[in-house]
Design a binder for these strands. Structure first.
Length: 272
DNA sequence: AGTGCGACCCGAACGC
DNA sequence: TGCGTTCGGGTCGCAC
């Protein structure tokens, strides 16, 4: 599932593949992916050029000149660049064809991803972007900021870390990893989180996301015509998806519980 | 306002 | 073997 590091990898890879390309036509096979008017989407895109690709939290932001195309991959969204004459896969829902007869194809087995076309000046007032919190790799993420957002909440810290309006881009995997690295129990209430905890969360989230982005970067060479989201970060996971396996620090079996409806992995000894 | 939960999807894992 | 059922996961929107 793409989190901030995977989205950053997709962004960098796509920049190398589609910047400068001009759209010839658009085919929308599954319109529910769009949070925009279908007819507008199909009529506005042709003629636009991909000028840049930005990112905010888990949102990809394609710069088309006077418009932005926003794209959220949710669980399994992927982009593929293919020749226009290749057969359309059953999970390819949006096809953007360029004047050089290559396609940018949006592929999503779960159909959870979303796209939205907005005028450039609307970016800062678009709800999806406006409510993004501070990214883990931003200098603006301070322990004081985190403490102010966390210490009045009765929710478990795991749930708080998944709130994109506080930290933008952390998902279920990295939230578990950050809490393990910070020695914080995922069920600890926001109101019990200390300033020192916040400093740990700030530091470990920056370290983990930076490392994950670096890992994603190392896989760029393996992308050819397909742009998956399989980074190499898996090999560094300390707790996530490691139920019953020994803790890397103390050998205690990793425990899996549900927090706020989400699978949560932690070490009961290291994360009291 | 803060919180909880169903809905959205469908492939994989599971149960019989 | 093959069928039906359950689960997961990010975010939204509705209910309380």
């Amino acid at each position: 599932m793409p989190e901030i590091a995977e989205v950053e990898t997709v962004r960098n890879t796509l920049k190398n593949m589609i910047l400068g390309k001009v759209i010839k036509s658009v085919k929308v096979i599954y319109p529910k992916i769009l949070d925009s008017n279908l007819e507008e989407f199909k009529s506005i895109l042709p003629g636009k050029k991909f000028i840049d690709i930005k990112r905010n939290g888990k949102w990809l932001i394609f710069d088309l000149g006077d418009y932005y195309l926003l794209s959220h991959l949710r669980m399994e969204g992927k982009y593929f660049v293919k020749n226009h004459n290749e057969p359309i896969n059953k999970h390819e829902h949006i096809i953007i064809t360029f004047i050089d007869d290559t396609d940018l194809r949006y592929h999503d087995t779960r159909k959870f991803g979303r796209m939205k076309l907005i005028k450039k000046e609307e970016l800062d007032s678009t709800p999806e972007i406006k409510k993004q919190g501070i990214e883990p790799i931003s200098d603006k993420l301070t322990k004081e900021y985190l403490y102010s957002k966390i210490h009045k909440s009765n929710l478990p810290i795991k749930t708080i870390l998944l709130d994109q309006t506080i930290i933008a881009g952390l998902g279920n995997i990295y939230a578990d990893e950050v809490l393990f690295a910070s020695h914080i129990n995922p069920l600890k209430k926001g109101s019990d989180i200390t300033l020192s905890d916040c400093e740990n969360i700030k530091n470990t989230s920056r370290e983990i996301i930076t490392k994950a982005i670096d890992c994603g970067g190392t896989t760029i060479k393996s992308y050819t015509s397909s742009l998956g989201v399989t980074g190499r970060f898996q090999q560094f996971l300390a707790v996530h998806k490691r139920e019953k396996e020994p803790c890397l620090i103390c050998k205690t079996p990793i425990v899996r519980i549900k927090v706020g409806g989400r699978s949560t992995y932690f070490c009961p000894k290291c994360q009291k």
